[in-house]
Amino acid sequence: MNMYRYIAFAMAAASAAAMLYVGLYQSRLVGRLICPIFGEGCEGVADASFARPFGIPDGYIGAVIYTVIIALLLAPPNRWVWTVLLVLSGAATLANVLGLRDMMIFGGYCFYCLTTALLSPVLLWSVWKLG
């Protein structure tokens, strides 16, 4: 694996873990979110109406997307894999930008959501560099 693949893998793995944790809280399999910096902001954001597109906890949606990205990063590289990686990384970045907007309007912030929002452009850049 080259350096960009390692970077992409690390960004996707950290983001998948963060979003899985949020999803577990959203479905109440975890009773409380430990929220560095923002106190109860994580729970407020995770419980907000915008955090359940189509009634599905967005933590799970994000975890699945990042897990698929990880699986594709482990697949033999080819143009099709790179294209799908690029589309998924771009979609994750766009979703995180929209999530930032929603949090700003809501007036509360989630440490885990902000973490994935900061990591997603790095993920997108590293996937781009794989092409």
Rank of each mutant, 00 (worst) to 15 (best):
N78F: 11
I7P: 07
L24W: 08
L73W: 01
E40W: 15
L20P: 00
A14T: 03
P36H: 04
V64Y: 03
P77W: 04
A46N: 04
F54W: 14
R5K: 12
G55Q: 06
I56G: 09
A75K: 10
I61M: 13
P36I: 06
T83Y: 13
P76N: 13
A18H: 02
G31K: 08
Y66I: 05
A46S: 13
R52T: 15
R28N: 15
A14P: 03
L74Q: 08
G55R: 02
A51M: 07
G23W: 00
A17T: 10
L86Q: 12
Y60S: 01
Y25L: 10
V68C: 10
Y6T: 15
R28E: 15
L74C: 12
V81R: 02
A18W: 01
I61W: 06
D47P: 15
E43G: 13
V87P: 14
I69K: 00
G55A: 08
D58H: 11
L86F: 15
E43M: 14
Y4L: 06
I70Y: 06
R52N: 14
A63C: 08
L74E: 09
E43T: 11
I37L: 12
R52P: 10
Y60F: 07
A48F: 01
L85D: 05
F9C: 11
C35N: 12
W80A: 12
M19I: 11
L85Q: 08
T67F: 05
A8C: 02
S15D: 00
G55T: 07
M3T: 15
L33Q: 05
F50T: 00
V84H: 04
G39E: 04
V64K: 04
R28P: 09
I70V: 09
